[in-house]
Simulated assay, not measured.
Amino acid sequence: MSQVSSVSDQLILLENCADFQQHALALAKDARRHIAILSTDLDFPLYDQDEFVSALSQLVRGSRFAQIQLLVKNTKPLIERGHKLARLSQRLSSKVLLRKLTLQPENTDMGFMLRDNDGLLFKNDDLVYRGFANYAAAVEVKRLRETFDYLWQYAEPEADLQQLHI
C-alpha cells in the first residue's frame, strides 16, 4: 500500500502494481501537454490498461500541443502480444510517438513516467513494483527529461509497429 513520505506530502512511496496503476492514471489525467515514458516493454500491467490509455488519448485529442513519447527497451512483447499504447501510437502517429532504445541510460534498470514539468512516477527497477510518485518534482523531472531527450535523439522507430496508411 502506498504511503506519503515524511519528507513531502507530494512524494508517495509505492510498493505494488495497484499503487503504480493508481498514480500513473492520476498523473495522466492531470497532464496538460506532455507525457514521456521510459520502460523495458511498456509494462503491460501498468500501461496496458483501458482507463490509462483513454486518459492519454483524451490528452492528445484535447490539445493540439499535447504529445506522448514512449521509449521502449524491448519491443518484442509489443509486437507479439499487442499493446493498447502501441495501437494508440498507430492511430495517432503524429501525437503518440513510440521508439526503441538504441542507447542504454546510465541506470539501465530504472523506468519512469514524466508528466509535464513536475509530475514523476519512478520505478527503481522497471521489473519490480517499488518506487515513488511525486506530484511536485520539477528538479527531478528536469534531470530525467534531459536523459530522456538524449536517449530519444538516438532511438529508432520500430518498423514492425509501424502501420501503412493508404
Rank of each mutant, 00 (worst) to 15 (best):
Q10D: 15
N107F: 13
A133Y: 08
Q69N: 11
D9W: 10
S94A: 08
I37E: 08
V53W: 06
Q10Y: 13
R33Q: 14
V4N: 10
Q69P: 02
Y154L: 04
M1C: 09
L11P: 05
S57N: 15
A86T: 07
L164K: 12
D125L: 02
R145H: 08
S89W: 00
F65G: 09
A138E: 15
L46K: 10
L88A: 15
E156L: 12
Q49P: 04
K73S: 12
S39I: 03
A55M: 08
G82I: 00
E15T: 15
K100R: 11
T147S: 15
L25I: 04
K29M: 06
L70I: 02
I79K: 04
V7K: 13
S6T: 15
L46F: 03
H34R: 14
H165W: 07
V7F: 13
Y135F: 14
R115F: 01
Q58H: 10
A18P: 06
L78P: 01
H165N: 10
L42N: 03
A159Q: 08
V7A: 15
S89E: 00
H23V: 03
V72E: 00
N117M: 07
F65P: 04
F148C: 04
D43F: 06
S54Y: 14
V60L: 08
I12N: 10
E80G: 08
H34T: 12
L38T: 01
Q3F: 15
L151C: 04
A66W: 07
D41N: 14
H165C: 05
D41E: 10
K73N: 07
E51C: 12
K142E: 14
H165F: 05
A137W: 03
